[in-house]
Simulated assay, not measured.
Amino acid sequence: MLNNIHKKIVSVLSWTLLAAGVLALFKRIFHGTAVCGKAKKTDVQGEDEGIFDVDKKVNINSADVHELATLPYVSLPVAQNIVNYRELNGSFSQKDELLNVKGIGPKLLGLIEEYICVE
């Protein structure tokens, strides 16, 4: 009897996880492409949680220090370096130019690439 209940619980949990995965996939497919714009305080929930709204990309050519700091893995000093570099050298024409900014290497660029845009 316990074995049958265990099997049913596992089956229900498996189907629930599968349905959640399918719904997430459909949302990603049919929701459209991410929009390049400004991050808002509502895009990050909590001060330390670091939950970022991936449907809104941060434009590295127009974002200020605080908006850039909302990006996952980007600290305030690195965000300030991005703004300083942009002020000295002009707008970024592609994401890879961030490699010229102090504090950003290939690994960090790979981590934040999906959250940024250049327009």
Score class of each variant (00 low, 15 high):
A24G: 08
S14H: 06
K56A: 00
G21C: 13
V10K: 15
A24T: 00
I104A: 04
V12R: 09
E67V: 06
D43G: 08
D53K: 02
D43F: 11
E47G: 11
T16D: 00
A39I: 06
V44E: 02
A20K: 02
S91L: 07
S14V: 14
F30H: 15
H6A: 13
A19I: 11
Q45A: 08
L111E: 15
Q80S: 05
F52C: 04
A20D: 01
V83S: 01
N59I: 02
I116Y: 03
V101T: 07
S91H: 05
N81M: 07
G32H: 15
K57I: 05
E47K: 14
C117M: 15
G103V: 10
V118W: 07
K95P: 05
V74S: 04
I116D: 15
V65Y: 05
N81R: 10
K95L: 10
N61P: 00
H31D: 08
L71Y: 12
T42Q: 12
P77R: 09
V118N: 02
V10N: 14
S93W: 02
I9S: 01
T33C: 03
S62C: 01
I104N: 03
C36Y: 01
G32D: 12
K107P: 01
T33S: 11
L25V: 11
K8L: 10
T70A: 03
L76C: 01
K57E: 05
R86I: 00
V65M: 03
K27A: 13
A69C: 00
A69H: 09
H31K: 08
W15E: 04
G21M: 11
L17E: 06
G21T: 12
E119S: 13
N100K: 14
V12G: 01
A24I: 05
S62L: 12
N4S: 14
M1S: 15
H31Q: 12
I112C: 13
V101K: 02
A34E: 13
T33L: 07
S75N: 06
I5C: 02
I29W: 15
K95C: 04
K27Q: 14
H31I: 09
K7D: 13
L99Q: 00
E114N: 14
Y115L: 08
S75C: 03
F30G: 10
D43Y: 13
L71C: 10
D96W: 03
S11E: 13
G110P: 09
V12Y: 07
G37C: 07
K107M: 14
